[in-house]
Amino acid sequence: MNIFRLAGDMTHLMSVIVLLLKIHTIKSCAGISLKTQELYALVFATRYLDIFTDFISLYNTIMKLIFLASSFSIVWYMRQHKIVRRSYDKDQDTFRHLFLILPCLLLALFINEKFTFKEVMWTFSLFLEAVAILPQLVLLQRTRNIDNLTGQYVFLLGAYRALYILNWIYRYFTEPHYVHWITWISGLVQTLLYADFFYYYFNSWKNNVKLQLPA
């Protein structure tokens, strides 16, 4: 474990906590893409298949449980909770899951470190995580402006992966044979997808104006 990875995990944890708190306290999910939340639940479900077979550390297991519980409870809130679900904008949140899931699955079948079910699922979860934010970014473009909490959520989500890139660089230089091209490239693509959002988020923060995304 290094400081970059710990900071990344904490930032990731903060992003889901911010989102859960927003939904739980104001009982609204306005501006949140259910599609993205469902994709994240799938990312964690396929990434953490080894939660009961490979014990890495207490920290690792606890964090996996937190991410699984939080992502599935966010989906539950948005689909089942009688008050929250009313604020879900299903007419605007129309991104098709399959357009992201199928290509990631096909890619994972061809590009993986080992052709085993767990490894292919793990690789699939990496590719899917890289693009899972797209429905949310599309929804933000459509609704044109976003409230602070959603902005913070997307920002933290992007920042966590950027910190992971620092972690991979650190590990590459400190651990011999630590080479994971698949992870690195998908993590880089994921962070680049946030780049334009970061640009608008930073400008709105600097000029102290409400975050407006161009149409």
Partner: peptide, 10 residues
């Protein structure tokens, strides 16, 4: 062949 070491990152 070596069993791929478990992924230690979240």
């Amino acid at each position: 062949d070596t069993e791929t070491e478990p992924h230690d990152e979240l």
